[in-house]
Design a protein around this nucleic acid. Structure first.
Lengths: 200, 200
DNA sequence: GTCTATACGGTGATAGAC
DNA sequence: GTCTATCACCGTATAGAC
């Protein structure tokens, strides 16, 4: 028991340190040796707990994802008016969702996946799940708000995921890129629902 | 004279070979040694013609950018109906603009810029120029077509650039991601212009 | 079973010969 | 300008201590 507990702590400590480094200097810029030493271990400890650099980064991203999803769902579960919740979401999307360091890592790691089928398939799983989640949130929200999307909801979900990643990438390079673009585009893709259609 | 000509040929040959490799296996996956040998030179020749891996990749991207811009402008300069030109563009955007290998490289290289201020500033220059170009094309097109964007044109330009990069990244991983999302979102962001406004 | 120590192949980069 | 030799560094693999 104490054995398993210690390993869990080692694993978590490695993930914690790795997360800081990956976010600060990117995937390629992070060396496993520095991660291990900074965490108080040797490089071999990393390989005892993770199959390699890719798996470590995947574990890091998974903890970040869990946190992001938790936050989004918390925002949409607020017991306030719809307007208030949407405002909270848009406000949060500017900082938390588009966080350049995170999005840049996400996007850099996706490039790594091109050489590693395992990473690719794992990422695809997560992307599909996230798009499903986004679609659900949008569907529920626009229904409550008597809005409709100007394009199919699945397309909106894919577009928002891609837009978030792309914007984060741009903003990581150029701080002048307007972080509001995300919310503005989202607003541009919905319109008031016509309760009673004329011709149909 | 023959001297300068030979060096120009060496440089072009290196860029040509490097472009193939960068696109095929990505930035990190490409080694300068293999590029040099494949081109018929030694690694030192690369360093005689380029300051390093980053500059070589930047040169590769510049040739690709020039080609893409040439194609887009050719499409919009066609001497046909507006509908026909737009159709050409949307058709081309599905394959040429969203080409996963290219977008993935673009996005991977942007991650490199985080350690290299020179790369960062060069990329920012190009992004701003491209957004300016996109904005011009959109402005001219929607005016001719009596359309208007639902959000400011600058935002549309930024959004399309980000969306293209993000979608390319997603599609490089997951072929099932719908390539039409780009065109659909673009269509969702424009609407017929009201010639005579009521209230204002 | 975990972690340390060490070694290996390969990379980007540099210095010097031609 | 180009090539060869060399260096420092990284991810990975393995052997052995506890």
């Amino acid at each position: 028991m104490s054995r398993a507990e210690r390993q869990r702590q080692t694993r978590e400590r490695l993930i914690e340190v790795a997360a800081q480094m990956f976010l600060a200097v990117g995937y390629a810029g992070t060396s496993l040796d520095k991660v291990a030493v900074e965490a108080g271990f040797s490089k071999g400890a990393v390989y005892s707990n993770f199959a390699g650099k890719e798996e470590l980064c995947m574990a890091v991203l998974d903890t970040i994802h869990a946190e992001k999803i938790r936050l989004v769902q918390a925002v949409f579960s607020e017991d306030t008016s719809l307007d208030s919740r949407l405002k909270s979401f848009v406000e949060w999307s500017r900082t938390g969702l588009g966080e350049p360091q995170w999005t840049a890592l996400e996007v850099e790691f996706a490039a790594v996946a091109r050489h590693n089928p395992w990473v690719a398939s794992e990422l695809v799983k997560r992307h599909r799940e996230i798009r499903r989640l986004i679609g659900q949130l949008i569907s529920a929200t626009i229904e409550e708000a008597d809005l409709e999307t100007t394009i199919p909801v699945e397309h909106v979900a894919t577009a928002l995921l891609a837009l978030g990643a792309g914007l984060g990438g741009l903003r990581a390079l150029d701080p002048k890129v307007d972080p509001d673009v995300f919310g503005v585009v989202l607003a541009g893709l919905v319109r008031p629902r016509r309760e009673a259609r004329d011709g149909e």
